[in-house]
């Protein structure tokens, strides 16, 4: 398309201006901080001690930080597969011309806007409860006693308990993104296909999938961003002291920045900054990879 300089400048300036004011200084400062030892994030530059790359090196030598990265990776990968496929399934069903679509859509999205504090409490104290939990009663009713006996929150199961609880809340969000992508595909295609006798699967394969690449990219980017910021659920699943199964880099960052639990430990905002830089790099990496791997096709529809 023909370039239109004034338009590019006019359209971009406000967004870029906001970005520069709100993000540029903090990001540059964070990058700079990651090379120093800093007790408090608000300390002036005069109080910083230069450390070179040692913040990064130490981080990767700390087994707890590696564990936190591993947890995050598992959340991103397993959770991503669960959430994106479930939400796509729902999105496809919802847009296939079924009745009560709006009701279904609203209910599936609902958990995403309920405060995490409530949802986490609900999962921890109700669903997973080994005394009167939903899972326990469900499996007992089915006479699956070995499953009913599982303590879902012990060390072996805690991570998956957390993962599933988190995914439950996220499905609705990604379903909306899928829906908004699919809805731009004219519904007549589906109507016609359904009446012509094309099964759901065929419809998906020949109509939906090719048209959804861009939305898939958005979904992956958004999933990556939200999982990088994964924090609240980790805190809620391990109150007061961090837990090996639920710790993620952001909670480690928090410990380094504000001190751990109830004991006053050494604080180092420089290490926190290094974690921030690492997380940002990961997002950029995934973003670029997505852009490279999934080329937007200029499809006509």
């Amino acid at each position: 398309m023909k370039k239109n300089k004034p338009m590019i400048i006019l359209f971009l300036t406000p967004a870029v201006l906001f970005f520069l004011v709100v993000f540029l200084y903090p990001i540059l400062r964070t990058i700079l901080m990651s090379f120093f030892h800093i007790t408090s994030i608000t300390d002036g530059i005069g109080e910083w001690t230069f450390r070179g790359l040692s913040n990064y090196i130490n981080l990767f030598q700390t087994s707890l930080f590696r564990q936190s990265c591993w947890n995050l990776f598992r959340i991103w990968l397993y959770g991503g597969i669960i959430v994106l496929s479930l939400s796509l399934l729902f999105g496809v069903i919802l847009t296939s011309g079924i009745r009560f679509k709006k009701v279904f859509r609203a209910i599936i999205y609902l958990p995403n806007i309920v405060s995490a504090v409530a949802l986490a409490t609900m999962w921890l104290q109700y669903v997973y409860s080994p005394k009167f939990g939903l899972l326990k009663s469900f499996f007992t009713a089915l006479h699956l006693d070995s499953l009913a006996k599982i303590q879902w929150l012990d060390n072996d199961h805690k991570f998956y308990a957390l993962l599933f609880a988190y995914c439950f809340g996220m499905v609705g969000y990604h379903m909306l993104i899928w829906c908004s992508g699919i809805e731009r595909i004219s519904p007549e295609y589906y109507e016609a296909a359904t009446i012509d006798g094309a099964g759901k699967f065929a419809q998906f394969r020949f109509i939906t999938r090719p048209l959804l690449k861009g939305v898939f990219k958005t979904n992956v980017t958004m999933w990556t961003v939200t999982s990088m910021a994964f924090f609240v659920w980790s805190q809620l699943f391990s109150t007061v002291t961090a837990d090996t199964q639920t710790i993620v880099p952001t909670s480690y960052l928090y410990i380094k920045m504000f001190g751990a639990g109830n004991t006053v430990t050494d604080r180092d905002a420089g290490v926190s900054a290094a974690i921030g830089v690492i997380l940002a790099l990961v997002v950029v990496l995934v973003f670029t990879a997505c852009n490279k791997l999934i080329k937007d096709d200029d499809l006509e529809f």
Partner: peptide, 9 residues
Amino acid sequence: EANEDMTPI
């Protein structure tokens, strides 16, 4: 809990 890197372990 004095060693925050060990506490969770």
